[in-house]
Nucleic acid binder design. Structure first.
Length: 490
RNA sequence: GGGCCGCUAGCUCAAUCGGCAGAGCAACAGCCUUUUAAGCUGCAGGUUCAGGGUUCGAUUCCCUGGCGGCUCACCA
């Protein structure tokens, strides 16, 4: 039988001896409760207002220690901030003070009771009359000056990253403010938050490869959702007018600075709305979230200064591509013609399966990186937009937009396709794409077509990537830095 | 998936044209009653990612693998 102590490294063993010593003295190194009277921020605020809060009890993790013989200055931090403790042998008593020096370490959670004062350098400090251990740290904290910088350790042991890197904690607090602001906006606009299946018998609503799992009792494969879209739109058939969901979606694809296998998406649908209503929602959400996160619409993302003040520009995909490449996709409006034109110009576009996919590639390579100011790109090819209504008078493209900022995409919206026959035909086309090797093609969803046969009102729908939006508003350039526990290899 | 770079003490980093692996912080033993990355004295701490190869000798050079980062391609 392995003893716990055998699992510890030398530094941890050293500290574990302190746990044993504390217990011998009758001190519980892990007492069940704290008796905090103020957070550190509350104590500071109270003092700064000129009130003397008197005898208070603060708690926190000890993160620095400066001892000078019979006095010690120690820093503690709680979730609200940092404060300095002043510990003096005369005040605490010889025994307590010596035990403090001997058995307390950086990283320990402590509880200190005393009164606030300012040192001669003016720093607000708690003069400690009573000190108790709240939780003994056996493992040492990362180095106090450089902190923790190794990315692998930061992601694998996020608690250490959060413990010592306050800016990282700030990013995740901002992320939550963004989500809260988005939710508050949608709630205010009458959207009802709903929950739809993460395990789906058919996957759909986006073009992506799924994760497959198996249900033993049902004896069938299930897919982790790649999107919520088709379930949410069924709710509009069921007479809800405005619904939304903020959820994890799962896509079995590459991992890089902007992609993880699970990510967070907001999707909302508005009956009797259309593409222009969704543009309004996007503009509002950018404003509300930027204000919540930063308090301003003037943001910095890497080298870019971006003004998020609406209205955002609207540019047809055809015009954007024409401007950047000289190719008019409405002239070269078939797969063969466009492919020939791309070859003739020696543009670097990977082989594709359709006109729409070629258009998308051209756009991604030559236009997307140039879209710095917020821009709605409209009129997407129909064959890459199987759930969007065709543009009246031009079946080649759909009533769809994507919103681009700082060279990246942040949302995707349609006037939703509600004609069951057209939707059925789109599914059939996707089936033939699948037969030609398009592994991301949609599966036929008979029940969804059945739902449309019962009538879905004209609808505007929108999806926005929460991780991407958080990256933009926190000036982070890797999705791993806005996701608490990003997937890594084992 | 391709290319490039990296992996050394708990943390942050050195070093070696291939020759005893060493600093700071943290720890440990001390000194020090107003410190701010406190200071000072002393002491300890290593499977140099793993395995193989070349060599008298490999942390260093080579190969394979693992993990991470960046980047290109694809997807949000």
């Amino acid at each position: 039988m392995t003893e716990f102590i055998e699992t510890l490294n030398d530094l941890e063993k050293e500290r574990y001896q302190k746990v044993l010593r504390l217990r011998e003295r009758g001190v519980n190194p892990y007492p069940p409760r704290a008796k905090r009277t103020h957070t550190i921020a509350e104590a500071r605020e109270s003092f700064e207002k000129g009130e003397d809060p008197g005898i208070i009890t603060l708690v926190g993790r000890m993160t620095a220690n400066r001892w000078t013989g019979k006095i010690t200055f120690a820093d503690i931090r709680d979730g609200s901030g940092r404060i300095q403790l002043f510990l003096r042998q005369n005040n605490l008593g010889d025994e307590t003070y010596k035990n403090f020096l001997k058995d307390y370490d950086l990283g320990d959670f402590v509880q200190a009771t005393g009164t606030l004062f300012q040192t001669k350098t003016g720093e607000l400090t708690l003069q400690v009359a009573e000190l108790e251990l709240l939780a003994k740290a056996i493992a040492p904290m990362p180095e106090k000056y450089h902190g923790l910088t190794d990315k692998e350790t930061r992601y694998r042991q996020r608690y250490l990253d959060l413990m010592v890197n306050e800016d990282v904690r700030a990013v995740f607090r901002t992320r939550q403010r963004i989500v809260t602001a988005m939710r508050a906006y949608l709630d205010r606009k009458g959207f009802i938050e709903v929950e739809t299946p993460a395990l789906q018998p058919l996957y759909g609503g986006a073009l992506a490869k799924p994760f497959v799992t198996y249900h033993n009792e049902l004896e069938r494969n299930l897919y982790l959702r790649i999107a919520d879209e088709l379930y949410l739109k069924r709710l509009l058939v069921g007479m809800y007018e405005r619904v939304y969901e903020i959820s994890k979606d799962f896509r079995n694809e590459g991992v890089d600075a902007t992609h993880l296998p699970e990510f967070t998406m907001m999707e909302c649908y508005q009956a009797f709305g259309d593409l222009s209503d969704m543009m309004q929602v996007v503009e509002d959400i950018f404003v509300e979230c930027a204000q919540a996160a930063l308090g301003t619409l003037q943001i910095t993302y890497g080298e870019h200064q971006v003004d998020l003040t609406p209205p955002f520009a609207r540019v047809a995909m055809r015009d954007a591509i024409l401007e950047k490449t000289g190719i008019d996709i409405y002239v070269d409006d078939s797969f063969e013609k466009l492919q020939a034109r791309i070859a003739e110009r020696e543009l670097s576009v990977e082989p594709q399966l359709s006109w729409g996919k070629l258009v998308e590639k051209l756009f991604g390579a030559y236009v997307e990186p140039t879209l710095i100011a917020p821009t709605f790109i409209i009129d997407f090819p129909t064959d890459i937009s199987p759930f969007a209504k065709k543009k009246p008078g031009d079946a080649r493209v759909t009533e769809r937009f994507e919103i681009y900022v700082a060279g990246g995409e942040y949302g995707n919206a349609f006037t939703e396709l509600n004609d069951p026959e057209d939707q059925w035909q789109r599914f059939m086309e996707q089936q033939s794409n699948r037969a030609r090797g398009d592994v991301e093609a949609q599966q036929m969803d008979d029940d969804y077509v059945q739902a449309l046969k019962h009538g879905m009102p004209p609808t505007g729908g929108l999806g926005m990537g929460i991780d991407r939006l958080t990256m933009l508003l926190t000036n982070q350039h890797s999705i791993r830095d806005v996701v608490l526990y990003p997937q890594l290899r084992n």
